[in-house]
Design a protein around this nucleic acid. Structure first.
Lengths: 192, 192
DNA sequence: CCCAGATGAGACATTGCTGTCTCATCTGGG
DNA sequence: CCCAGATGAGACAGCAATGTCTCATCTGGG
Protein backbone atom coordinates (compact mmCIF):
# COMPACT_ATOMS: atom_id res chain seq x y z
CA UNK A 1 0.00 0.00 0.00
CA UNK A 2 1.35 3.42 -0.89
CA UNK A 3 1.56 6.39 1.42
CA UNK A 4 -1.63 7.68 -0.21
CA UNK A 5 -3.69 5.10 1.63
CA UNK A 6 -4.47 3.10 -1.52
CA UNK A 7 -2.43 1.29 -4.13
CA UNK A 8 -1.12 3.59 -6.82
CA UNK A 9 -2.77 1.47 -9.55
CA UNK A 10 -6.26 1.81 -8.15
CA UNK A 11 -6.84 5.13 -9.85
CA UNK A 12 -6.25 3.80 -13.33
CA UNK A 13 -8.11 0.65 -12.45
CA UNK A 14 -11.11 2.66 -11.37
CA UNK A 15 -10.95 4.61 -14.59
CA UNK A 16 -10.80 1.43 -16.62
CA UNK A 17 -13.86 0.08 -14.79
CA UNK A 18 -15.74 3.30 -15.43
CA UNK A 19 -14.98 3.28 -19.12
CA UNK A 20 -15.94 -0.37 -19.51
CA UNK A 21 -19.16 0.32 -17.67
CA UNK A 22 -19.86 3.30 -19.88
CA UNK A 23 -19.29 1.26 -23.02
CA UNK A 24 -21.54 -1.54 -21.79
CA UNK A 25 -24.31 0.64 -20.40
CA UNK A 26 -24.40 2.62 -23.63
CA UNK A 27 -25.46 -0.55 -25.39
CA UNK A 28 -27.57 -2.02 -22.59
CA UNK A 29 -28.63 0.53 -20.02
CA UNK A 30 -30.19 -2.16 -17.81
CA UNK A 31 -27.02 -4.21 -17.50
CA UNK A 32 -26.52 -5.95 -14.16
CA UNK A 33 -23.73 -5.17 -11.73
CA UNK A 34 -22.50 -8.64 -12.56
CA UNK A 35 -22.43 -7.86 -16.27
CA UNK A 36 -20.67 -4.58 -15.60
CA UNK A 37 -18.07 -6.42 -13.54
CA UNK A 38 -17.54 -9.05 -16.21
CA UNK A 39 -17.24 -6.36 -18.87
CA UNK A 40 -14.50 -4.74 -16.82
CA UNK A 41 -12.81 -8.08 -16.27
CA UNK A 42 -13.20 -8.02 -12.50
CA UNK A 43 -15.43 -9.79 -10.02
CA UNK A 44 -18.62 -8.37 -8.63
CA UNK A 45 -17.02 -8.19 -5.19
CA UNK A 46 -14.24 -5.97 -6.45
CA UNK A 47 -16.73 -3.82 -8.34
CA UNK A 48 -18.55 -3.26 -5.06
CA UNK A 49 -15.27 -2.33 -3.42
CA UNK A 50 -14.81 0.43 -5.97
CA UNK A 51 -18.43 1.62 -6.04
CA UNK A 52 -20.71 1.14 -3.08
CA UNK A 53 -23.63 0.21 -5.31
CA UNK A 54 -25.28 0.69 -8.63
CA UNK A 55 -26.33 4.19 -7.72
CA UNK A 56 -22.79 5.15 -6.83
CA UNK A 57 -21.58 3.74 -10.13
CA UNK A 58 -24.09 5.77 -12.11
CA UNK A 59 -23.15 8.86 -10.15
CA UNK A 60 -19.50 8.27 -10.91
CA UNK A 61 -20.37 7.89 -14.59
CA UNK A 62 -22.28 11.14 -14.38
CA UNK A 63 -19.23 12.79 -12.90
CA UNK A 64 -17.09 11.35 -15.68
CA UNK A 65 -19.53 12.53 -18.33
CA UNK A 66 -19.52 16.03 -16.92
CA UNK A 67 -15.75 16.08 -16.78
CA UNK A 68 -15.47 14.86 -20.37
CA UNK A 69 -17.91 17.51 -21.52
CA UNK A 70 -16.07 20.25 -19.71
CA UNK A 71 -12.80 19.04 -21.17
CA UNK A 72 -14.30 19.02 -24.64
CA UNK A 73 -15.70 22.48 -24.07
CA UNK A 74 -12.32 23.76 -22.91
CA UNK A 75 -10.54 22.31 -25.91
CA UNK A 76 -13.18 23.70 -28.27
CA UNK A 77 -12.32 27.28 -27.19
CA UNK A 78 -15.94 28.46 -27.35
CA UNK A 79 -15.01 32.14 -27.10
CA UNK A 80 -12.71 32.03 -30.08
CA UNK A 81 -13.49 32.81 -33.71
CA UNK A 82 -16.94 32.45 -35.19
CA UNK A 83 -19.60 30.80 -33.07
CA UNK A 84 -20.36 28.35 -35.86
CA UNK A 85 -16.76 27.16 -35.96
CA UNK A 86 -16.76 26.89 -32.18
CA UNK A 87 -19.84 24.65 -32.36
CA UNK A 88 -18.12 22.48 -34.94
CA UNK A 89 -15.05 22.18 -32.71
CA UNK A 90 -17.24 21.34 -29.73
CA UNK A 91 -19.07 18.55 -31.53
CA UNK A 92 -15.79 17.13 -32.75
CA UNK A 93 -14.26 17.17 -29.28
CA UNK A 94 -17.32 15.69 -27.64
CA UNK A 95 -17.62 12.71 -29.95
CA UNK A 96 -15.55 10.31 -27.81
CA UNK A 97 -17.93 10.92 -24.91
CA UNK A 98 -21.08 10.65 -27.02
CA UNK A 99 -21.93 7.11 -25.96
CA UNK A 100 -21.61 7.94 -22.29
CA UNK A 101 -23.69 11.05 -22.76
CA UNK A 102 -26.39 9.09 -24.57
CA UNK A 103 -26.58 6.70 -21.63
CA UNK A 104 -26.76 9.49 -19.08
CA UNK A 105 -29.31 11.32 -21.19
CA UNK A 106 -31.65 8.36 -20.92
CA UNK A 107 -31.09 7.82 -17.21
CA UNK A 108 -34.19 9.55 -15.93
CA UNK A 109 -33.10 8.81 -12.41
CA UNK A 110 -30.58 11.63 -12.72
CA UNK A 111 -33.15 14.25 -13.64
CA UNK A 112 -36.32 13.40 -11.81
CA UNK A 113 -34.78 14.16 -8.43
CA UNK A 114 -35.50 17.57 -7.02
CA UNK A 115 -31.94 18.65 -7.61
CA UNK A 116 -29.46 17.40 -10.15
CA UNK A 117 -25.72 17.65 -10.35
CA UNK A 118 -24.64 21.27 -10.57
CA UNK A 119 -22.14 20.32 -13.25
CA UNK A 120 -24.92 20.09 -15.81
CA UNK A 121 -26.10 23.57 -15.01
CA UNK A 122 -22.58 24.85 -15.50
CA UNK A 123 -22.33 23.05 -18.82
CA UNK A 124 -25.74 24.27 -19.91
CA UNK A 125 -24.67 27.79 -19.07
CA UNK A 126 -21.42 27.56 -21.01
CA UNK A 127 -23.00 26.03 -24.09
CA UNK A 128 -25.93 28.41 -23.88
CA UNK A 129 -23.46 31.28 -23.74
CA UNK A 130 -21.87 30.07 -26.94
CA UNK A 131 -25.20 30.12 -28.75
CA UNK A 132 -25.96 33.51 -27.26
CA UNK A 133 -22.66 34.84 -28.52
CA UNK A 134 -23.61 33.66 -31.98
CA UNK A 135 -26.94 35.42 -31.73
CA UNK A 136 -25.47 38.67 -30.46
CA UNK A 137 -22.92 38.64 -33.25
CA UNK A 138 -25.69 38.29 -35.82
CA UNK A 139 -24.41 34.88 -36.78
CA UNK A 140 -27.29 32.81 -35.35
CA UNK A 141 -30.99 33.44 -35.67
CA UNK A 142 -32.70 34.78 -32.59
CA UNK A 143 -36.04 32.97 -32.80
CA UNK A 144 -34.54 29.78 -31.35
CA UNK A 145 -33.61 30.24 -27.71
CA UNK A 146 -30.12 29.30 -26.48
CA UNK A 147 -31.76 26.94 -24.01
CA UNK A 148 -33.48 25.05 -26.79
CA UNK A 149 -30.39 25.01 -28.95
CA UNK A 150 -28.45 23.52 -26.05
CA UNK A 151 -31.12 20.92 -25.46
CA UNK A 152 -31.23 20.11 -29.16
CA UNK A 153 -27.47 19.66 -29.21
CA UNK A 154 -27.69 17.06 -26.45
CA UNK A 155 -30.55 15.34 -28.22
CA UNK A 156 -28.72 15.18 -31.52
CA UNK A 157 -25.60 13.85 -29.84
CA UNK A 158 -27.61 11.07 -28.21
CA UNK A 159 -29.49 10.30 -31.43
CA UNK A 160 -26.32 10.13 -33.46
CA UNK A 161 -24.55 8.03 -30.85
CA UNK A 162 -27.34 5.44 -30.96
CA UNK A 163 -27.60 5.60 -34.73
CA UNK A 164 -23.86 5.00 -34.88
CA UNK A 165 -24.12 1.95 -32.62
CA UNK A 166 -26.79 0.53 -34.91
CA UNK A 167 -24.70 1.27 -37.95
CA UNK A 168 -27.23 3.67 -39.40
CA UNK A 169 -24.67 6.46 -39.30
CA UNK A 170 -20.93 6.06 -39.87
CA UNK A 171 -18.78 7.07 -36.91
CA UNK A 172 -16.59 9.22 -39.14
CA UNK A 173 -19.62 11.29 -40.13
CA UNK A 174 -20.63 11.98 -36.54
CA UNK A 175 -19.22 15.53 -36.27
CA UNK A 176 -20.48 16.62 -39.67
CA UNK A 177 -23.98 15.20 -39.30
CA UNK A 178 -24.60 16.86 -35.96
CA UNK A 179 -22.90 20.18 -36.54
CA UNK A 180 -24.21 20.71 -40.05
CA UNK A 181 -27.77 19.83 -39.12
CA UNK A 182 -27.69 21.93 -35.98
CA UNK A 183 -26.13 24.90 -37.75
CA UNK A 184 -27.54 24.79 -41.25
CA UNK A 185 -30.65 22.63 -41.02
CA UNK A 186 -32.07 20.52 -43.79
CA UNK A 187 -32.93 23.35 -46.15
CA UNK A 188 -30.59 24.02 -48.99
CA UNK A 189 -28.82 27.36 -48.90
CA UNK A 190 -29.32 29.70 -51.79
CA UNK A 191 -26.19 30.19 -53.79
CA UNK A 192 -24.81 33.68 -53.24
CA UNK B 1 -71.42 -9.16 -21.78
CA UNK B 2 -71.95 -8.08 -25.35
CA UNK B 3 -72.11 -10.36 -28.37
CA UNK B 4 -68.47 -9.40 -29.05
CA UNK B 5 -67.28 -11.54 -26.22
CA UNK B 6 -66.28 -8.62 -24.02
CA UNK B 7 -68.06 -5.66 -22.51
CA UNK B 8 -68.48 -2.79 -24.91
CA UNK B 9 -66.74 -0.36 -22.51
CA UNK B 10 -63.55 -2.38 -22.28
CA UNK B 11 -62.15 -0.88 -25.45
CA UNK B 12 -62.30 2.67 -24.21
CA UNK B 13 -61.14 1.53 -20.78
CA UNK B 14 -58.10 -0.11 -22.30
CA UNK B 15 -57.37 3.05 -24.22
CA UNK B 16 -57.66 5.12 -21.07
CA UNK B 17 -55.25 2.81 -19.27
CA UNK B 18 -52.77 3.03 -22.13
CA UNK B 19 -52.86 6.81 -22.20
CA UNK B 20 -52.47 7.08 -18.43
CA UNK B 21 -49.55 4.68 -18.60
CA UNK B 22 -47.97 6.68 -21.39
CA UNK B 23 -48.31 9.90 -19.44
CA UNK B 24 -46.80 8.36 -16.32
CA UNK B 25 -44.00 6.45 -18.03
CA UNK B 26 -43.03 9.57 -19.93
CA UNK B 27 -42.21 11.17 -16.62
CA UNK B 28 -40.91 8.06 -14.85
CA UNK B 29 -39.91 5.30 -17.22
CA UNK B 30 -39.23 2.88 -14.35
CA UNK B 31 -42.70 3.18 -12.84
CA UNK B 32 -44.05 0.02 -11.25
CA UNK B 33 -47.07 -1.88 -12.51
CA UNK B 34 -48.68 -0.79 -9.27
CA UNK B 35 -47.96 2.86 -10.01
CA UNK B 36 -49.26 2.47 -13.54
CA UNK B 37 -52.45 0.94 -12.18
CA UNK B 38 -52.92 3.70 -9.63
CA UNK B 39 -52.29 6.34 -12.29
CA UNK B 40 -55.07 4.79 -14.37
CA UNK B 41 -57.34 4.61 -11.34
CA UNK B 42 -57.62 0.82 -11.39
CA UNK B 43 -56.21 -1.99 -9.31
CA UNK B 44 -53.13 -3.94 -10.20
CA UNK B 45 -55.26 -7.05 -10.69
CA UNK B 46 -57.36 -5.33 -13.33
CA UNK B 47 -54.27 -3.98 -15.02
CA UNK B 48 -52.99 -7.53 -15.31
CA UNK B 49 -56.32 -8.57 -16.78
CA UNK B 50 -55.86 -6.02 -19.56
CA UNK B 51 -52.15 -6.64 -20.14
CA UNK B 52 -50.54 -9.95 -19.33
CA UNK B 53 -47.45 -8.27 -17.90
CA UNK B 54 -45.19 -5.32 -18.07
CA UNK B 55 -43.75 -6.46 -21.35
CA UNK B 56 -47.20 -6.73 -22.91
CA UNK B 57 -48.00 -3.24 -21.66
CA UNK B 58 -44.88 -1.78 -23.22
CA UNK B 59 -45.62 -3.60 -26.46
CA UNK B 60 -49.13 -2.18 -26.47
CA UNK B 61 -47.69 1.28 -25.91
CA UNK B 62 -45.33 0.68 -28.79
CA UNK B 63 -48.28 -0.28 -30.96
CA UNK B 64 -50.12 2.85 -29.86
CA UNK B 65 -47.09 5.02 -30.58
CA UNK B 66 -46.74 3.57 -34.05
CA UNK B 67 -50.43 4.08 -34.74
CA UNK B 68 -50.27 7.68 -33.55
CA UNK B 69 -47.26 8.33 -35.74
CA UNK B 70 -48.91 6.83 -38.77
CA UNK B 71 -52.03 8.86 -38.12
CA UNK B 72 -49.97 12.02 -37.81
CA UNK B 73 -48.13 11.13 -40.98
CA UNK B 74 -51.39 10.57 -42.83
CA UNK B 75 -52.84 13.86 -41.65
CA UNK B 76 -49.63 15.69 -42.56
CA UNK B 77 -50.06 14.71 -46.23
CA UNK B 78 -46.31 14.22 -46.79
CA UNK B 79 -46.65 14.07 -50.57
CA UNK B 80 -48.39 17.38 -50.83
CA UNK B 81 -46.88 20.81 -51.43
CA UNK B 82 -43.32 21.69 -50.47
CA UNK B 83 -41.39 19.16 -48.41
CA UNK B 84 -40.58 21.84 -45.84
CA UNK B 85 -44.25 22.57 -45.28
CA UNK B 86 -44.95 18.86 -45.05
CA UNK B 87 -42.31 18.54 -42.32
CA UNK B 88 -43.91 21.42 -40.44
CA UNK B 89 -47.30 19.77 -40.68
CA UNK B 90 -45.85 16.47 -39.53
CA UNK B 91 -44.23 17.97 -36.45
CA UNK B 92 -47.46 19.76 -35.58
CA UNK B 93 -49.52 16.61 -35.94
CA UNK B 94 -47.08 14.49 -33.98
CA UNK B 95 -46.88 16.77 -30.95
CA UNK B 96 -49.68 15.06 -28.97
CA UNK B 97 -47.76 11.79 -29.19
CA UNK B 98 -44.39 13.33 -28.38
CA UNK B 99 -44.34 12.22 -24.74
CA UNK B 100 -45.15 8.64 -25.67
CA UNK B 101 -42.52 8.68 -28.39
CA UNK B 102 -39.93 10.04 -25.98
CA UNK B 103 -40.63 7.15 -23.62
CA UNK B 104 -40.45 4.56 -26.38
CA UNK B 105 -37.30 6.17 -27.72
CA UNK B 106 -35.56 5.54 -24.41
CA UNK B 107 -36.85 2.00 -24.01
CA UNK B 108 -33.76 0.17 -25.22
CA UNK B 109 -35.56 -3.10 -24.70
CA UNK B 110 -37.48 -2.39 -27.91
CA UNK B 111 -34.39 -1.97 -30.05
CA UNK B 112 -31.75 -4.31 -28.70
CA UNK B 113 -33.72 -7.37 -29.74
CA UNK B 114 -32.68 -8.98 -33.00
CA UNK B 115 -35.83 -7.77 -34.68
CA UNK B 116 -38.04 -4.82 -33.80
CA UNK B 117 -41.60 -4.00 -34.68
CA UNK B 118 -42.00 -3.66 -38.43
CA UNK B 119 -44.12 -0.57 -37.88
CA UNK B 120 -41.01 1.45 -37.14
CA UNK B 121 -39.43 0.40 -40.39
CA UNK B 122 -42.54 1.48 -42.27
CA UNK B 123 -42.50 4.82 -40.48
CA UNK B 124 -38.79 5.28 -41.10
CA UNK B 125 -39.38 4.57 -44.75
CA UNK B 126 -42.25 7.04 -45.05
CA UNK B 127 -40.43 9.84 -43.23
CA UNK B 128 -37.23 9.08 -45.09
CA UNK B 129 -39.15 9.31 -48.34
CA UNK B 130 -40.36 12.76 -47.38
CA UNK B 131 -36.81 13.97 -46.85
CA UNK B 132 -35.76 12.31 -50.07
CA UNK B 133 -38.52 14.09 -51.93
CA UNK B 134 -37.20 17.37 -50.56
CA UNK B 135 -33.72 16.51 -51.73
CA UNK B 136 -34.80 15.45 -55.21
CA UNK B 137 -36.80 18.64 -55.56
CA UNK B 138 -33.73 20.70 -54.73
CA UNK B 139 -35.38 21.94 -51.57
CA UNK B 140 -33.19 20.07 -49.07
CA UNK B 141 -29.43 19.74 -49.06
CA UNK B 142 -28.08 16.39 -50.11
CA UNK B 143 -25.10 16.06 -47.76
CA UNK B 144 -27.35 14.93 -44.89
CA UNK B 145 -28.79 11.51 -45.55
CA UNK B 146 -32.55 10.90 -45.22
CA UNK B 147 -31.77 8.23 -42.64
CA UNK B 148 -29.94 10.70 -40.45
CA UNK B 149 -32.60 13.37 -40.92
CA UNK B 150 -35.23 10.86 -39.81
CA UNK B 151 -33.17 9.88 -36.80
CA UNK B 152 -32.57 13.52 -35.97
CA UNK B 153 -36.28 14.23 -36.15
CA UNK B 154 -36.99 11.51 -33.59
CA UNK B 155 -34.20 12.82 -31.38
CA UNK B 156 -35.43 16.38 -31.50
CA UNK B 157 -38.98 15.27 -30.73
CA UNK B 158 -37.78 13.37 -27.67
CA UNK B 159 -35.53 16.24 -26.56
CA UNK B 160 -38.27 18.78 -26.92
CA UNK B 161 -40.80 16.55 -25.16
CA UNK B 162 -38.51 16.23 -22.15
CA UNK B 163 -37.59 19.90 -22.20
CA UNK B 164 -41.30 20.69 -22.25
CA UNK B 165 -41.94 18.47 -19.24
CA UNK B 166 -39.22 20.30 -17.35
CA UNK B 167 -40.60 23.66 -18.39
CA UNK B 168 -37.48 24.60 -20.30
CA UNK B 169 -39.50 24.90 -23.50
CA UNK B 170 -43.11 26.10 -23.74
CA UNK B 171 -45.52 23.53 -25.13
CA UNK B 172 -46.91 26.07 -27.60
CA UNK B 173 -43.43 26.48 -29.11
CA UNK B 174 -42.96 22.76 -29.68
CA UNK B 175 -43.78 22.66 -33.41
CA UNK B 176 -41.79 25.78 -34.22
CA UNK B 177 -38.70 24.85 -32.23
CA UNK B 178 -38.39 21.43 -33.80
CA UNK B 179 -39.38 22.22 -37.36
CA UNK B 180 -37.43 25.45 -37.62
CA UNK B 181 -34.28 23.94 -36.15
CA UNK B 182 -34.53 20.82 -38.28
CA UNK B 183 -35.24 22.77 -41.45
CA UNK B 184 -33.29 25.97 -41.07
CA UNK B 185 -30.67 25.28 -38.43
CA UNK B 186 -29.19 27.79 -36.05
CA UNK B 187 -27.46 29.90 -38.66
CA UNK B 188 -29.12 33.10 -39.72
CA UNK B 189 -30.25 33.21 -43.32
CA UNK B 190 -28.84 35.93 -45.50
CA UNK B 191 -31.44 38.45 -46.50
CA UNK B 192 -32.28 38.05 -50.20
C1' DC C 1 10.96 -14.67 2.77
C1' DC C 2 6.90 -12.25 5.03
C1' DC C 3 2.82 -9.85 5.20
C1' DA C 4 -0.58 -6.21 4.24
C1' DG C 5 -3.72 -5.42 1.03
C1' DA C 6 -6.19 -6.53 -3.08
C1' DT C 7 -8.75 -9.91 -5.49
C1' DG C 8 -12.06 -13.82 -7.00
C1' DA C 9 -15.41 -17.05 -5.97
C1' DG C 10 -19.23 -17.94 -3.86
C1' DA C 11 -22.67 -18.19 0.01
C1' DC C 12 -26.26 -15.62 2.08
C1' DA C 13 -30.18 -12.70 3.39
C1' DT C 14 -32.82 -8.89 1.74
C1' DT C 15 -35.50 -6.33 -1.19
C1' DG C 16 -38.68 -4.86 -4.68
C1' DC C 17 -41.33 -6.23 -8.43
C1' DT C 18 -43.81 -9.59 -10.77
C1' DG C 19 -47.34 -12.84 -11.93
C1' DT C 20 -51.07 -15.69 -10.11
C1' DC C 21 -54.47 -16.75 -7.10
C1' DT C 22 -58.77 -16.28 -4.16
C1' DC C 23 -62.72 -14.09 -2.53
C1' DA C 24 -65.95 -10.51 -1.50
C1' DT C 25 -68.26 -6.87 -3.82
C1' DC C 26 -70.31 -4.24 -7.43
C1' DT C 27 -72.91 -3.57 -11.76
C1' DG C 28 -75.81 -3.95 -15.67
C1' DG C 29 -78.69 -6.72 -18.73
C1' DG C 30 -82.40 -9.97 -19.06
C1' DC D 1 -84.93 -10.15 -8.81
C1' DC D 2 -80.96 -13.01 -10.63
C1' DC D 3 -76.66 -13.80 -12.40
C1' DA D 4 -72.57 -13.46 -15.44
C1' DG D 5 -68.81 -10.87 -15.64
C1' DA D 6 -65.89 -7.22 -14.10
C1' DT D 7 -63.56 -5.22 -10.29
C1' DG D 8 -60.70 -4.26 -5.90
C1' DA D 9 -58.17 -5.85 -2.16
C1' DG D 10 -55.01 -8.64 -0.64
C1' DA D 11 -52.37 -13.00 -0.02
C1' DC D 12 -48.81 -15.75 -1.95
C1' DA D 13 -44.73 -17.66 -4.13
C1' DG D 14 -41.15 -16.83 -7.50
C1' DC D 15 -37.49 -14.33 -9.24
C1' DA D 16 -33.82 -11.42 -10.32
C1' DA D 17 -30.73 -8.14 -8.64
C1' DT D 18 -28.62 -6.11 -4.80
C1' DG D 19 -25.57 -5.61 -0.95
C1' DT D 20 -22.85 -7.99 2.59
C1' DC D 21 -20.12 -11.43 4.16
C1' DT D 22 -16.31 -15.03 4.45
C1' DC D 23 -12.37 -17.31 2.98
C1' DA D 24 -8.78 -18.92 0.00
C1' DT D 25 -5.52 -17.02 -3.15
C1' DC D 26 -2.51 -13.87 -5.38
C1' DT D 27 0.83 -10.00 -5.52
C1' DG D 28 4.21 -6.59 -4.61
C1' DG D 29 7.01 -3.93 -1.39
C1' DG D 30 10.09 -4.16 2.43
Amino acid sequence: MSHLGYPCFMAIDRDHVLRSAAALLTRKSTATMDEVAKAAGISRATLHRHFAGRDALVRALEQLGIAECEGALDRARPEEGSAAEAVRRLVREIQPAAGLLAFLYGENQLWEGDRQHEGWQRLDARIGALFQRGQRGGEFRIDLTPVWLTEALYGLIASCAWATLDGRVAARDFPTMIAELLLGGALRREEP
